[in-house]
Amino acid sequence: MHKALLIALCLTLPSGALFAQDNGLLPPNVIFVTSTGFWEESGGAPQPEESRDDDKNAKTAAPGGRRGYYKLIAVRQEDGTAQVHLQQIASTPTGPEVVSSAELEEFTALKPYVTDIRPETSTGITPQPGMFATVYLKTEAGATEPETWTVLIDELGDIKIERATN
């Protein structure tokens, strides 16, 4: 009975509320989630062992500084197209905490059918602050090959979204 109420509630929430659930369940319209890259507010360059995502090898940021990683999330809409959201996640002693969450309007304007989102590396280790991910999408449902777009966040936090060129 409780699960049915929870599912009904998820279906009535706006998409922004989908990311704030504490019950551990993701709604079925979340089609891709990729965590990648890192950021830190301390300003110092991380040592190689600080780039690791596992807790036993991660060192804490300088006092007062925060650090974390990025997430790209594709959310399917009723018409089959998707919105792509970017989240900045802080790594805290009590667990991950959402620092910011925003819809990437560049993708929304395309009304894309997102077919995949991939991080730059599957190891979780990146050599410098920032993020690089690839979004595969179709602008027409019947298209046979997807377009490739990149989302780049540099070490200063500037975001660049563009069609990939090979």
Rank of each mutant, 00 (worst) to 15 (best):
M1Q: 13
M1V: 14
M1N: 13
K3D: 15
L5Q: 12
L5C: 14
L6D: 13
I7K: 14
L9N: 15
L11T: 13
L11Y: 12
T12P: 02
L13I: 10
L13E: 13
P14F: 06
L18E: 05
D22M: 02
N23T: 03
P27G: 10
V33F: 03
T36N: 08
F38W: 13
F38E: 09
W39T: 03
E40V: 15
E41H: 09
G44W: 07
Q47K: 06
E49T: 12
E49C: 09
E49I: 14
E49H: 10
E49S: 06
E50G: 05
S51Y: 13
R52K: 07
R52M: 07
D54A: 06
D55R: 09
D55H: 06
D55I: 15
K56C: 04
A58E: 13
T60Y: 04
A62W: 00
P63Y: 12
P63T: 09
G64N: 07
G64Q: 05
G64I: 13
R67T: 14
Y69Q: 04
Y70M: 06
K71F: 02
I73E: 02
A74E: 07
V75M: 01
R76I: 14
R76H: 10
E78F: 08
E78K: 10
V84M: 04
A90K: 03
A90T: 08
S91Q: 15
T92S: 14
P93I: 07
E97V: 12
V98K: 01
L104D: 03
E105N: 10
E106L: 08
E106G: 04
F107I: 11
T108W: 10
L110F: 08
K111T: 15
Y113I: 15
Y113S: 11
R118Q: 06
P119A: 11
E120I: 15
T121F: 14
S122F: 13
T123W: 01
G124H: 02
G124I: 04
I125S: 00
T126I: 12
P127V: 12
P127D: 06
Q128P: 06
G130H: 09
F132T: 14
V135N: 07
E140I: 14
E140A: 13
E145M: 00
P146W: 04
P146G: 06
W149N: 00
W149V: 01
L152S: 12
I153H: 10
L156Y: 09
L156H: 05
G157P: 12
G157H: 07
G157I: 15
D158G: 01
I159H: 01
I159N: 00
A164G: 07
